[in-house]
Design a protein around this nucleic acid. Structure first.
Lengths: 201, 201
DNA sequence: GAACCTCACATAACAACGTTATTGATCGAA
DNA sequence: TTCGATCAATAACGTTGTTATGTGAGGTTC
């Protein structure tokens, strides 16, 4: 039940979250032990408990940090793109790219890779705000008349679930052939029900 | 590297897989320890090693059994349904129902919940054959003129990825409101690009 | 300025885990 | 019957998360 420590310790806390994420991304969940983490950072295992309470607390901090970075990447992927539909496509590509770059961290965020880790509802709420850029892009498409047939929230959620489904299947080894192309096709199909065809002439 | 034992041991092997699945489904990955499993069955931990080699071998057997049951449920969900489109809907509902009934087993099959478990390519191939009924139902829809615009394989894969994405998000707590209705809507949207509208008159 | 309190860290110990070595029992073949 | 092999129970080993026990530094109070 650890509350966040004094400001002076924030540096060590973020250092630990950072290094733990690096271990998780490069060597997987089995390699992420507290002794290993402590040794890498050059401390004992105790500070992890004073800062995060237990290993679950550390994982929760990694969960939040992962979503924070995903959210930042999503926002920057849509920023400054004039064509709303292009922004939507960029968001989809960014989502997959980040997931493939950090598969184990993605598992931590969207699955439950480490035994019995369960984020609290606050963390899930923060996580859900991550796809806000997707909603905004969908709204821009609606405003520009490029999409129709639903509100932005609903459209964005559907696009997200399709992207997530494809990435999840790809990481589990269930996508054969050109996964990038399959993802592209899935994006097109997921948007198809809402697409407004260009008027002839 | 354990080869399957003599036929006389098959009973114990399936008993172990069965009980392990029960523990995993009811108490999660953290509760599934070899000591606990052995105690529940009333043996020592050794038979697990002679039968499955190690814990990964047991998990691999559970993985295969999980897909075997999922495949059986999928086949029976489509069997004897006259309307091909209805069969497709039934398959979607069955998929979600099974996943929600055994969330941890579903994680084992479609994610990597237990540290560093990785099914071999044979197992993944068996797993992929699970959605064969989906391909057949899609083919029937194409033959009946209810769907168009793609081959059965591609359509089935897209429907699967959408179902999987929705179920995965729901299990991770990212679906708010009526999850069943959201799933229904996602199924409709995923099929929409291929749907043939009834001819007027 | 000195005694004290507090708090964070290192060290060491504990229970539980997967795994392996050792030992004993059981069963089929010669 | 006797020998051999095989499998399981027991116990032990190394590692994990976690907790108890010291220990030392920094701020507070008299």
């Amino acid at each position: 039940m650890p509350t966040v420590k004094a400001p002076t310790s924030d540096q060590l806390a973020s250092r630990l979250v950072d290094e733990a994420g690096r271990i998780l991304s490069t060597e997987g969940a089995a390699a992420l032990t507290l002794r290993r983490l402590a040794q890498t950072v050059g401390i004992s295992t105790m500070p992890v408990y004073t800062l995060f309470g237990d290993k679950q607390g550390l994982l929760a901090a990694m969960y939040r940090e992962g979503y924070r970075r995903l959210g930042a990447a999503m926002r920057s992927a849509a920023k400054g793109v004039d064509d709303p539909l292009q922004a939507l496509v960029n968001l989809g590509h960014t989502y997959r790219a980040i997931a493939l770059a950090n598969p184990h961290l993605y598992d931590l965020m969207f699955g439950r890779p480490v035994a019995s880790f369960q984020p609290d509802s606050d963390a899930v709420e923060v996580a859900d705000s991550t796809y806000r850029p997707l909603v905004e892009a969908a709204q821009r498409c609606l405003d520009a008349g490029q999409l129709t047939g639903g509100d932005a929230e609903r459209i964005a959620f559907h696009l997200w679930s399709v992207s997530h489904g494809m990435v999840s299947l790809e990481l589990a080894g269930h996508v054969h052939g050109d996964a990038a192309q399959a993802y592209e096709e899935a994006m097109v199909l997921s948007a198809a029900p809402f697409l407004v065809l260009p008027t002839p002439g």
